[in-house]
Amino acid sequence: MKLHYKVDGGAFTSAGFAAGQVKRTLRQLGISPEIIRKISIAMYEAEMNMVLHANGGNVDVELAKDYITVVLEDQGPGIEDIDRAMEVGYSTASQKVRSMGFGAGMGLPNMKRYADELTIDTKLGVGTRVELKVFI
C-alpha cells in the first residue's frame, strides 16, 4: 500500500509528523520494534532535513510484504558536497537552526546507519530526492 504526506517548510515544532504517522501505521501492521526504530530514525532525519534546508517537500511511502521504501522529494538548494555531508558532525545549518538543537551533522550519517539501502539524487538549485529502503 502507498501513503503520501506533504511536509511544510520551516515548521520545526511539527517536523517529524510524517515519520510519526508512519510509525503508527507500522505498529498497526505488527512490524517488529527493531524495524520500526530503523525506519523511524532514518525517516525522521530525512524529513527534518527537508524542513531545515529545503522548505518542505513530498513524502511517499510504500509498504510491501517484505520491505518499506520512503521517498522524500524536495525543490530545495540541493546538497553541494555529498561526501562531506555523509561525515558525522558535518553541517551547513545556520546558527539559528543550531541554537534550536538541530543541525548536529547527524542527518545523513544516521540515514545511512539505519536504512538498509539509501539512494540520494541531488542537483544544485533544483532539489533532492532521497530514497530509504528497509527490509522487513
Binding site: 500500500m1 505498529r27 498497526q28 501492521l29 505488527g30 509498504l63 510484504k65
Partner: peptide, 12 residues
Amino acid sequence: VLTLDDDREKAL
C-alpha cells in the same frame, strides 16, 4: 495490542 491482525498480509 495496537496491531490490526497477526497475519501481516491481512493487516496490510
